[in-house]
Amino acid sequence: MSSEPIRPTGPLDAPVSAAPVVDVAVAGSAVRRRPGASFFVGAAIVVLVALMAVVSFVWTPYDPTFVDAAVRLRGVGDPGHLLGTDKLGRDVLSQILVGARTTLFVGIVAVGVAGVIGVPLGVVAAMAPRWLGETLMRGIDLLLAFPALLLAIMFSAVYGGSTLVAMVAIGIASVPSFVRLVRSGAMQVLSTEYVLAARAAGRGPWAIGLRHVLPNVSGLVIVQASVSFAIAVLAEAALSFLGYGTPPPTPSWGRMLQESQELLFSAPRLAIIPGIAIALAVLGFNLLGDGLRDHYDPRLEDRR
């Protein structure tokens, strides 16, 4: 009496992830967002900074450390010096380009240090026996009392300022946020039924940690890495500004700011240009982190 069932067509094939989370919709954000404006603007800025760094390896208008007394304190738009020159006649654009390299290098190493220490510690804190996990977290809380700048100043008091000291100090200071985040993410994963099933099937903690926990917290880690990168850029700039970061003559945005300070009254552009560079880089990584979080945030999924 009935004809053949029809095959679903058209809108039925729409991706499932596009579905609105109606329960969340009651008061908050309605539709689970695809990468939004934050993500694209952030990614664009990050790519721009990375391009500046890459370009600086093959080409800069001048040697950024080349002192030329004949062209001291040229203004922005000077023929031959697009962004002008500083009090020693060094080309500002060249310094900014090479400075991007320093900024990214410090950020990558610092975030790397934080991730390499923080992610395994977070997983261990989640999977270890309660007493051990708690003790670990207490230690991490304690580390929070030593912000990056303080650590770096302590290190510098002992070893003198250097790029390495700055990177390690910033990295260590960023460990707690990774540990806390990974631990809470891992605990969520560990409480799911598929982990329970894996346990029941006799899988050991290593297998569960590697096969289930790590892949599931990787999104969180990427978000945190982006945010920590922004913090590292800020800390590096502050350290270089204080004279504890990258030593001269290697160009660094923070030190450019410091050198500009005595000329604030006559040449504020020397402060404003590296200032914009720092703020732009931080903004880029923060926006990228925000955009990624919209994409990965487990809390939105939990609300279902």
Partner: peptide, 14 residues
């Protein structure tokens, strides 16, 4: 977001 991206010492200089 812009405010967050400006370090305090840069704000001071500006």
């Amino acid at each position: 977001q812009v405010g967050v991206a400006v370090p305090a010492f840069l704000a001071g200089i500006l």
